[in-house]
Computed example of a mutant assay.
Amino acid sequence: MRSLEQLTEELLSLPSASRALLADKLVESLEFDTDSAIQEAWVNKAKQRRNEVRNGSVPIIDGDEALKQVRQLLE
């Protein structure tokens, strides 16, 4: 059986459209113990952000670069 790290590496190598579809399915599979209005708001926000990435209206930042920027902000 593959480790979570191996599976993550494999999945991150997929084309962006496939990763977006996978992300949709993962979000849909989660069981929320929160208020349904809060759950709906988070799902809507996630879909909004997904659509912004898909249509190119927001810049995409590499994960390593994003972490670097966050670390700099925390210093």
Rank of each mutant, 00 (worst) to 15 (best):
E9Y: 13
E31Q: 10
G63K: 00
D35A: 01
L14Q: 05
Q69A: 12
K68C: 07
D24I: 02
R2D: 13
E31K: 03
G63T: 07
T8G: 12
K45N: 09
L4A: 10
E10W: 12
Q39H: 13
P15Y: 02
V70K: 00
D33C: 04
D64T: 11
D35F: 00
Q6A: 09
L22N: 12
L11D: 07
N55W: 03
Q48I: 06
I60K: 03
L11V: 04
N51Q: 15
L21H: 15
L14F: 05
L12C: 14
E5L: 11
D33H: 02
L22D: 13
S18H: 09
S36E: 07
R49M: 09
L30N: 06
D62V: 00
S3I: 11
A41N: 12
L30I: 04
S18W: 03
E9V: 09
L11P: 06
V53T: 00
Q72S: 11
A17G: 14
L67T: 08
R71P: 05
K47N: 13
E31P: 10
R71V: 04
E31A: 04
W42E: 01
T34L: 00
A46Q: 10
S18E: 15
S29V: 05
I38Y: 10
E9G: 13
T8N: 14
S36R: 08
W42Q: 03
L26P: 01
Q69T: 14
